[in-house]
Protein backbone atom coordinates (compact mmCIF):
# COMPACT_ATOMS: atom_id res chain seq x y z
CA UNK A 1 0.00 0.00 0.00
CA UNK A 2 3.00 2.25 0.21
CA UNK A 3 3.02 4.40 -2.86
CA UNK A 4 5.10 7.12 -1.31
CA UNK A 5 8.50 8.10 -2.54
CA UNK A 6 11.61 7.73 -0.43
CA UNK A 7 11.36 10.93 1.62
CA UNK A 8 7.69 10.65 2.45
CA UNK A 9 6.91 9.48 6.00
CA UNK A 10 3.89 7.29 6.80
CA UNK A 11 1.54 5.56 4.37
CA UNK A 12 -0.28 7.67 1.85
CA UNK A 13 -3.71 6.05 1.46
CA UNK A 14 -4.89 5.01 -1.99
CA UNK A 15 -7.96 7.03 -2.92
CA UNK A 16 -9.63 3.98 -4.43
CA UNK A 17 -8.84 1.58 -1.58
CA UNK A 18 -11.06 1.30 1.51
CA UNK A 19 -8.77 0.74 4.49
CA UNK A 20 -9.35 -0.27 8.10
CA UNK A 21 -10.05 3.33 9.18
CA UNK A 22 -12.81 3.57 6.62
CA UNK A 23 -14.51 0.40 7.86
CA UNK A 24 -14.10 1.31 11.54
CA UNK A 25 -15.74 4.66 10.84
CA UNK A 26 -18.70 2.98 9.11
CA UNK A 27 -19.11 0.41 11.90
CA UNK A 28 -19.03 3.07 14.63
CA UNK A 29 -21.59 5.12 12.75
CA UNK A 30 -23.98 2.18 12.55
CA UNK A 31 -23.44 1.19 16.20
CA UNK A 32 -24.13 4.69 17.44
CA UNK A 33 -27.15 4.93 15.16
CA UNK A 34 -28.51 1.65 16.52
CA UNK A 35 -28.08 2.77 20.13
CA UNK A 36 -29.69 6.05 19.24
CA UNK A 37 -32.84 4.56 17.80
CA UNK A 38 -32.97 1.62 20.24
CA UNK A 39 -35.35 3.56 22.45
CA UNK A 40 -37.79 3.89 19.58
CA UNK A 41 -37.36 0.25 18.57
CA UNK A 42 -37.91 -0.93 22.15
CA UNK A 43 -41.00 1.21 22.71
CA UNK A 44 -42.57 0.14 19.44
CA UNK A 45 -41.49 -3.47 20.06
CA UNK A 46 -43.01 -3.56 23.51
CA UNK A 47 -46.20 -2.00 22.27
CA UNK A 48 -46.50 -4.54 19.45
CA UNK A 49 -45.71 -7.44 21.79
CA UNK A 50 -48.24 -6.37 24.41
CA UNK A 51 -50.86 -5.78 21.76
CA UNK A 52 -50.33 -9.17 20.08
CA UNK A 53 -50.48 -11.00 23.40
CA UNK A 54 -53.70 -9.26 24.36
CA UNK A 55 -55.23 -9.35 20.90
CA UNK A 56 -57.05 -12.66 21.21
CA UNK A 57 -58.91 -11.39 24.25
CA UNK A 58 -59.79 -8.13 22.54
CA UNK A 59 -61.31 -10.09 19.62
CA UNK A 60 -63.19 -12.79 21.52
CA UNK A 61 -63.99 -12.28 25.20
CA UNK A 62 -63.61 -8.50 25.36
CA UNK A 63 -66.68 -6.47 26.13
CA UNK A 64 -66.13 -2.75 26.51
CA UNK A 65 -68.95 -2.51 29.02
CA UNK A 66 -67.75 -5.34 31.19
CA UNK A 67 -64.07 -4.41 31.03
CA UNK A 68 -64.39 -0.79 32.03
CA UNK A 69 -67.65 -0.75 33.98
CA UNK A 70 -67.74 -3.98 35.97
CA UNK A 71 -66.05 -4.05 39.37
CA UNK A 72 -65.77 -7.85 39.22
CA UNK A 73 -62.36 -9.14 38.32
CA UNK A 74 -62.94 -12.90 38.47
CA UNK A 75 -60.95 -14.43 35.64
CA UNK A 76 -60.63 -17.78 37.40
CA UNK A 77 -64.35 -18.33 37.94
CA UNK A 78 -65.09 -21.76 36.45
CA UNK A 79 -68.66 -21.09 35.40
CA UNK A 80 -68.56 -17.54 34.16
CA UNK A 81 -65.26 -15.65 34.31
CA UNK A 82 -65.66 -11.85 34.40
CA UNK A 83 -63.00 -9.36 33.45
CA UNK A 84 -64.00 -6.01 34.97
CA UNK A 85 -61.23 -3.55 35.88
CA UNK A 86 -63.38 -0.82 37.41
CA UNK A 87 -62.31 -1.72 40.95
CA UNK A 88 -58.68 -1.94 39.85
CA UNK A 89 -58.89 1.46 38.18
CA UNK A 90 -60.49 2.85 41.32
CA UNK A 91 -57.63 1.35 43.34
CA UNK A 92 -54.95 2.85 41.13
CA UNK A 93 -56.71 6.21 40.91
CA UNK A 94 -57.36 6.54 44.64
CA UNK A 95 -53.80 5.60 45.58
CA UNK A 96 -52.31 7.91 42.94
CA UNK A 97 -54.66 10.71 43.95
CA UNK A 98 -53.74 10.47 47.62
CA UNK A 99 -50.06 10.18 46.67
CA UNK A 100 -50.31 13.47 44.79
CA UNK A 101 -51.98 15.13 47.78
CA UNK A 102 -48.94 14.10 49.80
CA UNK A 103 -46.29 14.70 47.16
CA UNK A 104 -47.33 18.05 45.66
CA UNK A 105 -47.08 20.22 48.81
CA UNK A 106 -44.01 18.30 49.91
CA UNK A 107 -42.11 18.61 46.64
CA UNK A 108 -43.19 22.20 45.90
CA UNK A 109 -42.12 23.25 49.38
CA UNK A 110 -38.73 21.61 49.19
CA UNK A 111 -38.18 22.83 45.62
CA UNK A 112 -38.89 26.41 46.73
CA UNK A 113 -36.57 26.03 49.69
CA UNK A 114 -33.71 24.55 47.65
CA UNK A 115 -34.09 26.93 44.71
CA UNK A 116 -34.90 30.19 46.50
CA UNK A 117 -33.65 30.09 50.07
CA UNK A 118 -30.89 27.51 50.55
CA UNK A 119 -27.38 28.63 49.68
CA UNK A 120 -23.90 27.17 49.44
CA UNK A 121 -23.29 23.88 51.23
CA UNK A 122 -26.88 23.41 52.45
CA UNK A 123 -28.14 23.63 48.91
CA UNK A 124 -25.56 21.25 47.44
CA UNK A 125 -26.07 18.71 50.23
CA UNK A 126 -29.85 18.84 49.87
CA UNK A 127 -29.66 18.38 46.12
CA UNK A 128 -27.49 15.28 46.47
CA UNK A 129 -29.75 13.84 49.17
CA UNK A 130 -32.85 14.41 47.08
CA UNK A 131 -31.27 12.63 44.11
CA UNK A 132 -30.33 9.82 46.47
CA UNK A 133 -33.87 9.58 47.78
CA UNK A 134 -35.13 9.25 44.21
CA UNK A 135 -32.87 6.23 43.75
CA UNK A 136 -34.28 4.12 46.59
CA UNK A 137 -35.70 0.90 45.04
CA UNK A 138 -39.48 0.65 45.17
CA UNK A 139 -39.37 -2.70 46.97
CA UNK A 140 -37.70 -0.91 49.89
CA UNK A 141 -40.56 1.55 50.01
CA UNK A 142 -42.98 -1.37 49.88
CA UNK A 143 -41.13 -2.96 52.77
CA UNK A 144 -41.49 0.25 54.79
CA UNK A 145 -45.20 0.21 53.99
CA UNK A 146 -45.55 -3.38 55.16
CA UNK A 147 -43.45 -3.32 58.30
CA UNK A 148 -43.62 0.29 59.57
CA UNK A 149 -46.68 2.02 58.15
CA UNK A 150 -48.94 -1.01 58.58
CA UNK A 151 -48.71 -1.34 62.42
CA UNK A 152 -48.56 2.45 62.71
CA UNK A 153 -51.88 2.90 60.91
CA UNK A 154 -53.50 0.07 62.91
CA UNK A 155 -52.40 1.74 66.15
CA UNK A 156 -53.16 5.33 65.21
CA UNK A 157 -56.56 4.91 63.62
CA UNK A 158 -57.72 1.74 65.36
CA UNK A 159 -58.50 -0.10 62.11
CA UNK A 160 -58.17 -3.87 61.56
CA UNK A 161 -55.89 -3.65 58.52
CA UNK A 162 -53.09 -1.18 57.91
CA UNK A 163 -52.48 -2.14 54.30
CA UNK A 164 -54.81 0.23 52.52
CA UNK A 165 -55.15 3.36 50.38
CA UNK A 166 -53.72 5.55 53.13
CA UNK A 167 -50.62 3.41 53.50
CA UNK A 168 -49.94 3.07 49.77
CA UNK A 169 -50.81 6.71 49.08
CA UNK A 170 -48.34 8.01 51.64
CA UNK A 171 -45.62 5.60 50.52
CA UNK A 172 -46.17 6.42 46.87
CA UNK A 173 -46.27 10.15 47.62
CA UNK A 174 -42.93 10.01 49.42
CA UNK A 175 -41.56 7.96 46.54
CA UNK A 176 -42.67 10.39 43.86
CA UNK A 177 -41.70 13.53 45.77
CA UNK A 178 -37.91 13.52 45.10
CA UNK A 179 -38.18 13.38 41.32
CA UNK A 180 -40.93 15.99 41.39
CA UNK A 181 -38.75 18.18 43.61
CA UNK A 182 -35.86 17.90 41.17
CA UNK A 183 -37.95 18.95 38.19
CA UNK A 184 -39.76 21.74 40.05
CA UNK A 185 -36.44 23.07 41.30
CA UNK A 186 -35.10 23.15 37.73
CA UNK A 187 -38.18 25.09 36.70
CA UNK A 188 -37.68 27.64 39.47
CA UNK A 189 -33.98 28.00 38.67
CA UNK A 190 -34.89 28.69 35.04
CA UNK A 191 -36.68 31.90 36.08
CA UNK A 192 -34.20 34.71 35.36
CA UNK A 193 -32.74 36.47 38.41
CA UNK A 194 -33.63 39.88 36.96
CA UNK A 195 -37.30 39.18 37.74
CA UNK A 196 -36.42 38.53 41.38
CA UNK A 197 -34.25 41.65 41.56
CA UNK A 198 -36.91 43.82 39.98
CA UNK A 199 -39.62 42.57 42.32
CA UNK A 200 -37.31 42.94 45.33
CA UNK A 201 -36.46 46.49 44.31
CA UNK A 202 -40.17 47.26 44.36
CA UNK A 203 -40.22 46.30 48.02
CA UNK A 204 -41.68 42.81 47.77
CA UNK A 205 -40.87 40.49 50.65
CA UNK A 206 -39.22 37.23 49.71
CA UNK A 207 -42.49 35.34 49.84
CA UNK A 208 -44.27 38.03 47.82
CA UNK A 209 -41.51 37.87 45.22
CA UNK A 210 -41.81 34.08 44.99
CA UNK A 211 -45.59 33.96 45.09
CA UNK A 212 -46.29 36.82 42.70
CA UNK A 213 -43.37 36.59 40.31
CA UNK A 214 -41.35 33.38 40.42
CA UNK A 215 -44.15 30.81 40.71
CA UNK A 216 -46.26 32.30 37.89
CA UNK A 217 -43.18 32.47 35.67
CA UNK A 218 -42.32 28.83 36.42
CA UNK A 219 -45.81 27.40 36.29
CA UNK A 220 -45.35 25.28 33.16
CA UNK A 221 -42.29 23.54 34.54
CA UNK A 222 -43.99 22.99 37.87
CA UNK A 223 -47.00 21.47 36.14
CA UNK A 224 -44.70 19.23 34.10
CA UNK A 225 -43.03 18.03 37.29
CA UNK A 226 -46.35 17.24 38.90
CA UNK A 227 -47.52 15.30 35.84
CA UNK A 228 -44.35 13.23 35.82
CA UNK A 229 -45.08 12.42 39.45
CA UNK A 230 -48.58 11.31 38.46
CA UNK A 231 -47.10 9.10 35.75
CA UNK A 232 -44.73 7.60 38.27
CA UNK A 233 -47.55 6.88 40.68
CA UNK A 234 -49.67 5.33 37.98
CA UNK A 235 -47.00 2.95 36.80
CA UNK A 236 -45.56 2.01 40.18
CA UNK A 237 -46.04 -1.69 40.94
CA UNK A 238 -44.02 -3.24 43.71
CA UNK A 239 -44.58 -0.70 46.51
CA UNK A 240 -48.26 -0.55 45.64
CA UNK A 241 -48.57 -4.35 45.58
CA UNK A 242 -47.04 -4.54 49.06
CA UNK A 243 -48.81 -1.60 50.70
CA UNK A 244 -52.39 -1.64 49.33
CA UNK A 245 -53.42 -4.98 50.76
CA UNK A 246 -54.06 -6.25 47.22
CA UNK A 247 -57.78 -6.85 47.74
CA UNK A 248 -60.30 -6.22 44.98
CA UNK A 249 -62.57 -3.61 46.40
CA UNK A 250 -64.50 -0.54 45.39
CA UNK A 251 -63.03 1.79 48.02
CA UNK A 252 -65.30 3.90 50.18
CA UNK A 253 -62.67 5.25 52.60
CA UNK A 254 -58.90 5.59 52.79
CA UNK A 255 -58.83 2.67 55.20
CA UNK A 256 -60.10 0.23 52.55
CA UNK A 257 -57.68 -2.20 50.99
CA UNK A 258 -57.58 -1.96 47.22
CA UNK A 259 -55.80 -3.50 44.31
CA UNK A 260 -53.97 -1.62 41.58
CA UNK A 261 -53.87 -2.37 37.84
CA UNK A 262 -50.11 -2.83 37.83
CA UNK A 263 -50.07 -5.04 40.89
CA UNK A 264 -52.72 -7.31 39.34
CA UNK A 265 -50.51 -7.98 36.34
CA UNK A 266 -47.45 -8.57 38.51
CA UNK A 267 -49.23 -10.97 40.85
CA UNK A 268 -51.24 -13.01 38.34
CA UNK A 269 -49.25 -13.22 35.15
CA UNK A 270 -46.93 -15.96 36.42
CA UNK A 271 -49.84 -18.21 37.33
CA UNK A 272 -51.84 -18.17 34.14
CA UNK A 273 -51.59 -20.46 31.15
CA UNK A 274 -49.93 -18.69 28.25
CA UNK A 275 -52.55 -17.78 25.66
CA UNK A 276 -55.53 -18.35 27.95
CA UNK A 277 -58.22 -15.62 28.13
CA UNK A 278 -56.98 -14.68 31.61
CA UNK A 279 -53.43 -14.28 30.30
CA UNK A 280 -54.66 -12.19 27.41
CA UNK A 281 -56.87 -10.07 29.65
CA UNK A 282 -53.83 -9.16 31.75
CA UNK A 283 -52.10 -8.00 28.59
CA UNK A 284 -55.14 -5.91 27.74
CA UNK A 285 -54.69 -4.18 31.09
CA UNK A 286 -51.09 -3.69 30.00
CA UNK A 287 -52.21 -1.96 26.80
CA UNK A 288 -54.48 0.29 28.84
CA UNK A 289 -51.69 1.20 31.32
CA UNK A 290 -49.23 1.74 28.52
CA UNK A 291 -51.59 4.15 26.77
CA UNK A 292 -52.35 6.12 29.94
CA UNK A 293 -48.73 6.52 31.06
CA UNK A 294 -47.72 7.38 27.51
CA UNK A 295 -50.30 10.18 27.40
CA UNK A 296 -49.31 11.50 30.85
CA UNK A 297 -45.59 11.49 30.05
CA UNK A 298 -46.09 13.03 26.64
CA UNK A 299 -48.21 15.82 28.12
CA UNK A 300 -45.63 16.46 30.83
CA UNK A 301 -42.85 16.52 28.27
CA UNK A 302 -44.69 18.93 25.98
CA UNK A 303 -45.43 21.24 28.90
CA UNK A 304 -41.80 21.23 30.09
CA UNK A 305 -40.62 21.86 26.53
CA UNK A 306 -43.05 24.75 26.38
CA UNK A 307 -41.19 26.65 29.08
CA UNK A 308 -37.77 26.00 27.61
CA UNK A 309 -38.86 27.71 24.39
CA UNK A 310 -40.51 30.73 25.95
Amino acid sequence: MNHASGQQTGNLPDINQRNADWYIDKIVQYLVFLSGISAIILIVGIFIFVTIEGFGFLLEDFSFREFFLSPWWEPTDDDEPTYGILALMAGTASVTGLAMLVAIPFSLGSAIYVAEFATGKTRETLKVLIELLAAIPSVVWGFIGLSIMNPLIIDLFDVPVGLNILNAGVILGLMAAPIMTSICEDALKAVPDRYREAAEALGGTRWQVIYKTVLPAAKNGLLGGVLLGVGRGFGETMAVLMATGHAINMPSSVFDSVRALTATIAAELGETAVGSPHYQALFTIGIFLFTITFIINLTADLIVRGIRKS
Binding site: R194, Y195, E197, E200, L202, T213
Partner: peptide
Protein backbone atom coordinates in the same frame (compact mmCIF):
# COMPACT_ATOMS: atom_id res chain seq x y z
CA UNK B 1 -38.91 45.79 52.39
CA UNK B 2 -40.54 49.03 53.47
CA UNK B 3 -37.28 50.86 52.75
CA UNK B 4 -37.11 49.43 49.23
CA UNK B 5 -40.77 50.22 48.80
CA UNK B 6 -39.98 53.92 49.29
CA UNK B 7 -37.07 53.89 46.84
CA UNK B 8 -37.76 53.42 43.14
CA UNK B 9 -35.20 51.74 40.90
CA UNK B 10 -34.98 51.67 37.12
CA UNK B 11 -32.48 49.13 35.76
CA UNK B 12 -30.31 49.57 32.64
CA UNK B 13 -32.18 46.89 30.71
CA UNK B 14 -35.92 47.12 31.28
CA UNK B 15 -37.29 44.27 33.35
CA UNK B 16 -40.96 43.82 32.65
CA UNK B 17 -42.18 41.35 35.24
CA UNK B 18 -43.82 38.33 33.58
CA UNK B 19 -47.21 39.92 34.12
CA UNK B 20 -49.63 42.03 32.09
CA UNK B 21 -48.96 45.73 31.57
CA UNK B 22 -51.71 46.53 34.05
CA UNK B 23 -50.40 44.11 36.69
CA UNK B 24 -46.85 45.40 36.31
CA UNK B 25 -47.98 48.85 37.36
CA UNK B 26 -50.49 47.59 39.93
CA UNK B 27 -47.85 45.37 41.55
CA UNK B 28 -46.74 47.77 44.27
Amino acid sequence: YALRNRIGVVFPLPVGLPLTIYENVAFV
